[in-house]
Design a protein around this nucleic acid. Structure first.
Lengths: 113, 113
DNA sequence: AACAATACATTGGTATCTTATGTATTAAAA
DNA sequence: TTTTAATACATAAGATACCAATGTATTGTT
């Protein structure tokens, strides 16, 4: 787990990227996927995730379809056309930022785990 | 310039790293150095920088000496023993975070500029 | 029967930033 | 020479994005 400030500003990028790769996902699935992919180093809290998903929807970047699994509701999110464009932009911007920070903090190349 | 969310949570790490490399620096110098090193991609605002420096001082991570250049005041910051330790930890944590994000966002290796 | 996991959501609080404003000195440009 | 830009500090108000806590309800596991 990283100190909480670090995650700030990356949540939307993470969500958009996952949706770009997976076509449609629901909230709980997104948080589980992130936890899994990061070996629990990043764990999205519900208080952060759901408001973010709602904001993405309000901005027209994602659309939703609600389904019932038995009696339990499940809300699927998928990227709109604008969302697909935004996903690429956000990931590219982060890639650029990553390189800038690596240079600024003099961080050496690390082998891919 | 990156969208403002991205920078969030990185300011302390940047300041500590610069002080680790330069022994002592003053506020204006820090912001100028960051702007220079990042080709203006990261520009620290005064409203963010000065409160951060004061917080680092309050936490005992940096110490200060005030000097006068003519009639103009200049406040130098340098790392305390705790600050040196903290600088290494923060940079290491951020390096780890960058690798996690690189994997999560599927960002390819980029040639060093 | 009780607990953990699944699945949604909201509220209150905090940290961290941006924007704007303020003061003052010094150097450069018009 | 006067005005603008750069140097150098600082604070206040407001926005944003998050965390922690709480809530509801269903389903699977012990």
């Amino acid at each position: 787990m990283y100190s909480s400030e670090l995650i700030k500003g990356t949540l939307k990028t993470i969500v958009l990227k996952l949706l770009a790769d997976n076509k449609r996902m629901y909230g709980y699935e997104i948080s589980a996927k992130v936890k899994d992919l990061t070996k629990s180093k990043i764990q999205l809290t519900e208080g952060a995730l759901y408001p973010t998903l709602h904001a993405l929807e309000a901005d027209g970047l994602v659309k939703t379809e609600t389904e019932y699994i038995g009696k339990r509701v499940r809300k699927y999110y998928s990227l709109s056309t604008t969302g697909k464009k935004s996903a690429k932009e956000k990931v590219n911007e982060f890639a650029d930022f990553l390189n800038t920070m690596k240079f600024l903090l003099d961080i050496p190349q690390v082998a891919i785990a």
